[in-house]
Design a protein around this nucleic acid. Sequence first.
DNA 1: CTCTAATTGATACTTGATATCAATAAATGT
DNA 2: ACATTTATTGATATCAAGTATCAATTAGAG
Lengths: 152, 152
Amino acid sequence: MAASIVESGSIDLSNALEDRGLRRTAARSAVTGRIEQLNDAFTAENLCRDLPDVGRATVYRTIRHLVDAGALCKLPILDGAPMYSIARVDHHHHTICVRCGAVGEFRHSTVERVLRSLEKEIDGDIVGHRMEIFITCRACLGDQHAIKKTSR
Amino acid sequence: MAASIVESGSIDLSNALEDRGLRRTAARSAVTGRIEQLNDAFTAENLCRDLPDVGRATVYRTIRHLVDAGALCKLPILDGAPMYSIARVDHHHHTICVRCGAVGEFRHSTVERVLRSLEKEIDGDIVGHRMEIFITCRACLGDQHAIKKTSR
DNA sequence: CTCTAATTGATACTTGATATCAATAAATGT
DNA sequence: ACATTTATTGATATCAAGTATCAATTAGAG
């Protein structure tokens, strides 16, 4: 019943679709295959550009199925299109570089502990949460040669 | 230099615009006035509907100025248009009801403490963060008369 | 009251994403 | 292998949120 897990700890995308009763087709394999090739988070438009032979509608539909299946995380960026990343089995959160947009992950048990302590403070049932940390990543810090590093 | 604070702890919206060197106009007053009337978070389209005599472009522009000024928080909702709420002086986070979309606030010092402990784990400089808790609010819990409450 | 620059808002456009629907392909039964 | 049924595809139209354009208007300084 549980979705297939591959060694890396992520969910196998094709199987995730099959588990939902969806057919295994060439178009869907192209989409899941491309996503698995990518290391970084991506947008729907990225995939459309990478897969010119797959229709936009199919790309968007497949992404939606994968999100519904829990195999992809949808990351709402402040402006523009949301990004997607392969969901790991263990719950985690994301870092987003405000300069280059690179998305990373982290997991931290304290975050979950905080949630539990918030239950009394919040007027309703907690059904989920989302946390993003905005950073300037190592690479981008390297780019700006010591600018703004000294003054406060 | 600091933006004017009114008793409630929120930033005065008209003054926030003036502090940025923007003129005080009838259209902008209509927008800020309407926002201040609202208790809840709102979308840009909400404002446009409430203010049919103010052009869409002006509504969107004014919201953008207010966000830039730090007088409004922009809350990216998972699907659809982002919502905005008046920024309080003290840092806080939001709860979003997954049934009715109602937005609430909470503040919790532990969240900030978690962030500090994450600094070692994260490869870059933390420049900001965002946390949203998804809930079923009290009102919506009342609606669904005990459904799904018993089974596991 | 005049002048200048900021502002406005109708309109057209851009972007991201979904709906439609005839053509196609996958699974199933024989 | 073939026919049948049903899911899937993708070109196209459409939708929704938001931005760019630009002539007409208005605020504020002098």
